[in-house]
Design a protein around this nucleic acid. Structure first.
Length: 431
RNA sequence: GACCCUAUCGUCUAGCCUGGUCAGGACAAGAGCUUUUCAAGCUCUCGACACGGGUUCGAAUCCCGUUAGGGUCACCA
């Protein structure tokens, strides 16, 4: 039975790098029917916060990574203490009392030797123990150090594959020494390359949003984020980019992961998000969008027409880059007063179109069967009679109706806006 | 500084293991088509094997070095 673990520390949000590590762990066991263990590394009482635990669990759930078991290191201090005592008794560790510390620390003796990591992604990596200092196992306050708790837990939780970030490579020889001293079986290791920011160095807050939950707020679909993350350091082959997660599960193998650090590119994520948005389930998308509309005061929480929202979601779906773009682009369908973009007004409504608008209002009013096709025909017939090109009036009408120069096709807009509201909005510009 | 990792278009990558296809695709950028604006779509353009040595008839591919980037060196995780 293959068992992997994702072991975040609740001292901050789940960030992009952590999300990708979780993804690769989760992906790895899916096809092999293994177990995904979540271990909250909350040994640092000062910095660990319950709110971060909730945030991390929420983000993992949102991404779709279900865990089979969950453990908290803060509840396992007795276990670590027991194993440290064992090493002490066997003479593999010693105690040390520092004048400025409360109690005695237990420290592991590092003996001179060569240590070899067999990494599934990088191959063999060799270290000389000469470069490794004696390691603190238990701090003088009675809490375990990271490397020690990690080894004890990975062994006791029967973790078969430790898949984690590159930044842990130099911890690995220290941990291998501990496995050997404890007489515990070694797991397989796979070190994932790090994700870098656009300006070089680790992805950090300076280079953009880092928390998975931020991307949720920014209107990215979890499927799109996961697909994008998947393409960082791994490729499904055959030049494929958009790939269903279930297919990725079949194709993925940890040994195929690249060794090179990848740069996080928001532009490509946007493209990916649009790919998913275009084919997303409109009903689900509507459910996501309704709270946003309520918050933007576009609709009333207790009194709105879901069917109407749904029809508009379908209209805007192909052009959305982010879920919440909808609120910005479709607000005129909900607000009583059009939010006029001054630039759009100057560009398209600086001339007086009173005569043309009045005529169009008249024609719309007379239109019997108010369908998109009929609206278009009505408009084009009128323009033909006036001897004008369609675009001469299309843009001014659009701006008068929507306050924007961008949006779906004008006749769709008029149709969804309805006859009365369209007439009203045009009339405002008739002097 | 010491130790470790890495090196293909601006970015993500295919190709590398098992040397021999104009080094392929995607994002971005630029141009065009379509058109009713924006987005999408379609077509085209731009654009890379870090450098230097080997090995070989032949190197992106194998070996060595240099350089560059990154990571780690806590009683943080």
């Amino acid at each position: 039975m293959i068992r992997v673990r994702f072991a975040p520390s609740p001292t901050g949000n789940l960030h992009i790098g952590g999300g990708r590590t979780a993804l690769f762990n989760w992906l790895y066991i899916r096809a092999k029917d293994g177990k995904f263990i979540l271990r909250i590394e909350d040994t640092d009482k000062e910095r660990s916060k319950k709110e971060f635990v909730d945030e991390i669990l929420g983000s993992l759930t949102w991404l779709g990574f279900k865990w089979d078991e969950i453990y908290y290191q803060s509840k396992r201090f007795d276990i670590y203490r027991e194993y440290a005592q064992k090493l002490l008794k066997e003479g593999k560790a010693y105690t040390e009392k520092l004048p400025d510390k409360p109690g005695e620390a237990i420290i592991f003796k590092v003996m001179p030797q060569k240590i070899k990591i067999k990494d599934l992604i990088r191959g063999d990596i060799e270290f000389d123990a000469e470069n490794i200092k004696d390691q603190v196992l238990m701090k003088s306050d009675g809490t375990p150090t990271y490397n020690f708790a990690c080894v004890v837990d990975d062994a006791l939780m029967n973790i078969t594959h430790v898949i984690r970030g590159d930044d842990h490579i130099s911890n690995t020889p220290k941990q291998i020494l501990l496995y050997e001293a404890l007489g515990l079986p070694l797991p397989a290791f796979a070190h994932l390359p790090l994700i870098m920011g656009m300006e070089g160095g680790r992805l950090s807050k300076r280079t953009g949003a880092t928390a998975i939950s931020d991307y949720r707020k920014m209107g990215y679909l979890p499927e799109a984020l996961v697909n994008y993350l998947l393409l960082l350091s791994w490729a499904p082959g055959e030049d494929r980019e958009v790939i269903d997660i279930n297919e990725a599960i079949k194709l993925f193998d940890i040994t195929d992961v690249n060794k090179t650090a990848a740069t996080f590119d928001l532009k490509k994520l946007d493209w990916m998000n649009n790919q998913y948005l275009k084919s997303a389930d409109s009903e689900k998308l509507t459910d996501d969008i309704i709270p946003m509309l309520i918050e933007a005061k576009c609709i009333d929480k207790d009194n709105f027409d879901r069917g109407y929202v749904l029809s508009l979601v379908k209209l805007f779906q192909p052009r959305l880059a982010h879920v919440n773009d909808f609120v910005d682009w479709a607000d005129f369908f909900f607000l009583k007063e059009v939010k006029m973009d001054p630039v759009a007004q100057a560009k398209c409504l600086s001339k007086d179109f009173s005569k043309e608008f009045a005529l169009f209002v008249q024609r719309l009013d007379a239109l019997q069967d108010f369908t998109v096709e009929n609206i278009e025909k009505c408009f084009r017939d009128m323009m033909a009679e006036l001897g004008l090109e369609a675009k001469v009036l299309i843009h001014p009408i659009r701006v008068a109706l929507t306050g924007k120069t961008i949006g779906p096709g004008l006749f769709e807009v008029i149709y969804h806006l309805g006859k009365e509201r369209s007439k009203e909005r045009l009339q405002k510009w008739i002097r």
